[in-house]
Design a protein around this nucleic acid. Structure first.
Lengths: 358, 358
DNA sequence: TTGAAAGCGCTAACAT
DNA sequence: ATGTTAGCGCTTTCAA
């Protein structure tokens, strides 16, 4: 019952009257061990319930076989899928995952980076909070490869794997324009991060490409439900508030492009309460294609994000860096940005002037 | 540019012509170091960018300052919130988090337990896959405390912190009955786990308490969107399929209690397509109170789950065990189950016979 | 084929 | 107040 001490190589060695060394090599299936000895060692290890001590191993091998993941909020469904994909890919490649949640706090992020350095993880994937890059510089300087996920960080020249939000916004805006709508709004998260600015840029560029331009107040900002303490899940509330004002402003046939599907849902409710039928009198487009979106009434047109692909590509890129890290000088490839394409899923939340089928 | 070797205590020691030991004690703020020496050591550590090596420290101290979390699927919004809460609580108490995702595969779970033993984590929190307890026994036997989260595992007598699903189901069923409904259905996840069986039990018991009883086919099973590979998020699809059949069977005023809010949403759609108005002709109750639920049309009555509380209580319980683990024999308290109360949030998805306000 | 010795980076017990 | 020694559990020379 007493939590007895873990079995070590030494225990096996003394039990068999061998040296620790021989036991180590026998278990590692190296040569220079007689078949018989190997058999006895493995049997004894089994009998004693031997479990190798990863820390000790890592200490001498100078590799942790661990990746760090620094993420802002697992309740963001896109990030949740990212976590799964990353853990899975890392695991199949032999790496464990240390998870750090920042809740978009730069202090938490700094602590996370520091902690990861202390552990000496082999590499770090991060969805960074905006502003503040010194701690990431510190990581890099200590020789730990870093790959940014999904958010670009100005002033930090490292690898990035993410979503091509600009393309997503262009596709969404293009689609809306194709239905003949002329009054467009963009309801974006009130966060100073690259996905948001990219979407805004895509929105404006697409309009411009059609010889149109949006008034300054066509882009409205929706506060995040954030706050201190335990992470708050996404919430349609703030967009609902905004939606009331929008409902008053919007003429018939107006369409709002939302920064995420929760915002879209808040808009649905606001419009409905103002007697506006989404998909008929007014349009809404989501972003993220959350599983609930296809089942809303009307089904939401949204931009699907390649979460699993981003996670996998992120791990792959990171491990490339990890594996070439011990190389001779100059062997390092320059940092690159990989942007994976999202996909517009057209459903029924944008009115068709011809009343045609969706 | 070359990822130069990490600074160690030795580097500081030689630079200052001190012993490693003195440097160690100076940085740890122990006594028996002159004020002046301490100052010099800290300055030099700073200058050299010294970062303590946690692994080396853990190896000698025989504690990892790490907790393991074994979870089935981060895309389950309840679990996502659990992850945040656990990471946060662990962090404030000085522990890092190693995350293992099982995707409800017993093989993955076994591997996770093994990996955590190799790391020698101080304790493990797990949302277990059903069936198969040997790997958890193994963990326990090696002296690593284990706390189960949310799912009871028959045949394994360990601490559990979770939600009182039985109470939640009773409250929901009671509420439905109080509106005068007499035709009730339960649409449950097709998973052999304790939350599901507890909800079914609560459903039947409440009916019985009112002198009623449900026909055998009142409980219908909804398949999970599961599958191999990267975790699939919850999805209203399967419940939508079931809902079509239910819509045909259900008489006016029938109410379906869903196992989660995604199922409820699938039901909404199925009913609507059959010309049934949810909240008027027919009722739906959700479970989990997902953030989207309050914004559905009609707003979904659902059972709110205390995610953050479960996570915190789980960590607290685990750390109690961790801290008393080194104790003398017999000091261990018996394993206990802590079930936190959910809360029924009444909105407008169940018809009121009097047509009264909600 | 096996063993002895050294060392990864750190802390603790025991000198001095 | 500081240094020396030993050791956490493992792997890697290098000898035998």
């Amino acid at each position: 019952m007493s939590p007895r001490r873990r079995t070590t190589l030494r225990d096996i060695a003394t039990a068999l009257d061998l040296s620790v060394n021989t036991v180590s090599r026998a278990l590692a299936d190296k040569d220079a061990v007689s078949v018989e000895t190997r058999r006895r060692v493995k049997a004894e290890a089994e009998r004693l319930g031997y479990v190798p001590n990863t820390m000790a191993r890592s200490l001498v091998l100078q590799n942790a076989m661990t990746l760090g993941l620094v993420i802002t909020n697992p309740s963001n469904p896109f990030y949740a899928r990212l976590i799964s994909a990353i853990e899975e890919r890392g695991r199949t490649r032999g790496y464990s995952l240390m998870l750090m949640v920042t809740e978009d706090s730069i202090d938490n992020e700094r602590r996370a980076a520091e902690e990861l350095m202390r552990w000496g993880v082999d590499g770090v994937l991060a969805i960074p909070v905006q502003h503040g890059t010194e701690h990431w510089e510190g990581l890099r300087k200590s020789g730990i490869p870093l790959v940014l996920l999904n958010r670009h960080l100005p002033g930090l020249d490292v690898d990035l794997v993410g979503v091509d939000y600009y393309a997503g916004a262009r596709a969404a805006t293009e689609h809306v324009l194709s239905t003949g709508a002329t009054e467009l709004y963009l309801a974006e998260e009130n966060l100073d991060i690259s996905p948001v600015s990219e979407r805004i840029r895509g929105f404006h560029d697409t309009l411009a490409a059609h010889g149109l331009s949006a008034p300054d107040d066509a882009v409205v900002r929706v506060d995040s439900p954030g706050g201190g303490g335990v992470s708050v899940p996404f919430d349609p509330g703030p967009a609902y508030e905004i939606g009331a004002a929008l409902a008053r402003r919007a003429g018939p046939g107006a369409v709002v492009l939302a920064g995420n599907d929760y915002h879209a849902l808040g808009l649905y409710r606001a419009f409905t309460e103002h007697g506006l039928r989404v998909g008929v009198d007014v349009g809404v487009v989501g972003h993220g294609d959350h599983p609930f979106s296809a089942y809303l009434d009307p089904p939401l047109t949204s931009v699907r994000l390649p979460a699993a692909e981003v996670g996998q590509a992120g791990v792959d890129r990171l491990l490339e860096r990890v594996e070439t890290a011990g190389q001779a000088e100059g062997g390092e490839a320059a940092p690159a940005h990989t942007l994976l394409p999202p996909e517009l899923v057209v459903r029924a939340s944008v009115p068709r002037p011809d009343g045609g089928e969706h």
